[in-house]
C-alpha cells in the first residue's frame, strides 16, 4: 500500500515535471548551466579533488554534454546525490541528467518513468576473498560470511545466486563502502561482494593487495548509464547522442588530439565528416551547433580516452576494457551509425 502510494506520487511528479519541462534543452541553454546529478564519491567514477573540481568516468559524461550544449565543459552545477535521493532529484527536476553509476533495470525505466540514454559502463557483481581462504570459484563459498551493502540490487543478486546454487551464507550487513573495506580487512567476513569495478578499486588500496583475489564469477548484469526523465525526447536525444558520439569517436579513431585537425576541413571518411559537422546537418537536427560533437570530444577525449584516464589499466584502479571494449575488439560498445 505504502509503496503504491509512493510510486504513484513519483509517477505524478514525473508527469507534471515532464509537462512543464518541455523544452529542457532550451531551458539549459538559457540557464547557461547543466545540472548534473553525480555520485557524492565513488572511486574512478565521480569525486571532487582538493580544489573542489569534480572528475571521474561519470563526470566526464556530464562534461561532454555541457560542452556539446553550452560550449563549456565547466558550465555544470554538480549535484551530489545518494542512492536514496537520486531518483527524486531527477523526477522533481532538480537535475537535468543523472550520471551516477545507475543500473538500467526494467522497473526504473518503466515504472519510475525514466529514460536510460545508453550504457557507459557494463559492470557486474563479483566477490573478493583472501588468497589463504583457498577458494578459486564463487561456487565454493558455501557457508561463508559475506559483507554486503544493504538496500542495493547487489543484496538481491547475492540471495538469488546462493539460492540457485543451493548454498548457505551468512550475511554481514554494512552501510557504506568504507565500512565494508574495514570489516573485510578486519576479518569480519570471508568475502565482500559488490560491483566488480568497485572491488578492483578497493583492492588497489589494500596494503597487501597481492593476498586478495577477485573471483572469476560475475553473478549479475549491471549496465550503468546516464538517464533523464520521460517526456522530453529532444533532451533525451541530446544526452543519448552525445554519449554515442564519444563511443563512435573511438571507433572512428577521432581523439582529443586530432579532433581539431579532422574538423577543420572535410576528410575522406564521410562518417567522420558527418559526426564532426563538416558534412550534413546532424547538429542542427539535435538543436545544437554543427560542431557539437567536436566540443564534446575535446572536453575529455573519446570514450576510450575517458576510460583509460579515469579507470583504465594505467590508473591504480586498473580495470581492463573487457565488456566495455569496442564491438570491433570483442566488447559491447556499439554506437549506432551517424547518418
Amino acid at each position: 500500500m505504502n509503496k503504491t502510494v509512493f510510486v504513484g506520487v513519483l509517477a505524478l511528479a514525473g508527469m507534471s515535471a515532464s509537462v512543464a519541462a518541455a523544452g529542457l534543452l532550451d531551458e539549459v541553454k538559457t540557464r547557461g548551466k547543466l545540472n548534473c546529478g553525480v555520485n557524492a564519491g565513488l572511486v574512478g567514477f565521480a569525486a571532487p579533488d582538493a580544489n573542489g573540481e569534480w572528475g571521474g568516468f561519470d563526470v566526464a559524461v556530464c562534461r561532454a554534454i555541457a560542452a556539446a550544449v553550452l560550449d563549456d565543459p565547466n558550465a555544470i552545477e554538480f549535484v551530489p546525490t545518494t542512492a536514496k535521493t537520486r531518483f527524486t532529484a531527477l523526477a522533481s527536476g532538480e537535475i537535468d541528467v543523472l550520471a551516477r553509476n545507475t543500473t538500467w533495470t526494467f522497473t526504473r525505466d518503466v515504472d519510475l518513468k525514466f529514460e536510460f540514454t545508453g550504457v557507459n559502463y557494463y559492470d557486474g557483481q563479483g566477490f573478493i576473498v583472501r588468497k589463504d581462504l583457498g577458494v578459486s570459484s564463487a561456487k565454493e563459498l558455501d557457508g561463508a560470511t559475506i559483507c554486503i551493502q544493504t538496500g542495493t540490487t547487489t543484496e538481491l543478486n547475492l540471495a538469488d545466486f546462493f539460492r540457485i546454487n543451493n548454498m548457505d551464507y551468512d550475511p554481514v550487513p554494512i552501510e557504506t563502502e568504507a565500512e565494508a573495506q574495514q570489516q573485510y580487512l578486519a576479518g569480519a567476513c570471508d568475502s565482500y561482494t559488490t560491483d566488480a569495478s568497485a572491488l578492483a578499486a578497493n583492492r588497489a588500496t589494500f596494503e597487501d593487495s597481492a593476498n586478495h583475489i577477485i573471483l572469476p564469477e560475475i553473478i549479475s548484469k549491471e549496465p550503468l548509464g546516464p538517464l533523464v526523465r520521460h517526456g522530453d525526447n529532444e533532451w533525451g536525444d541530446v544526452v543519448r547522442w552525445t554519449l554515442n558520439a564519444l563511443i563512435a569517436a573511438e571507433e572512428l579513431g577521432v581523439t582529443s588530439a586530432n579532433v581539431a585537425e579532422l574538423a577543420s576541413a572535410p576528410g575522406s571518411n564521410p562518417e567522420i565528416n558527418r559526426l564532426l559537422g563538416t558534412e550534413g546537418t546532424l547538429g542542427e537536427m539535435l538543436g545544437l551547433q554543427p560542431d557539437w560533437a567536436v566540443k564534446a570530444i575535446s572536453a575529455g577525449g573519446n570514450y576510450g580516452e575517458i576510460f583509460e584516464k579515469n579507470i583504465g589499466e594505467a590508473t591504480p584502479i586498473g580495470l581492463a576494457r573487457g565488456l566495455n571494449a569496442q564491438w570491433t575488439s570483442g566488447g559491447l560498445m556499439y554506437a549506432p551509425p551517424f547518418r
Binding site: A40, P48, P80, K84, A178
Partner: peptide, 25 residues
C-alpha cells in the same frame, strides 16, 4: 550527509573517493 549535502562526514566519503586517499578512515 544522508541527503547528499557535503558536510564534514559527507566530504570524508568524497575524499575517500579520490583514488589517492581511498582506504583512509
Amino acid at each position: 550527509s544522508i541527503i547528499g549535502l557535503l558536510d564534514p562526514i559527507g566530504l570524508s566519503n568524497s575524499i575517500r573517493a579520490d583514488q589517492s586517499w581511498n582506504g583512509i578512515v
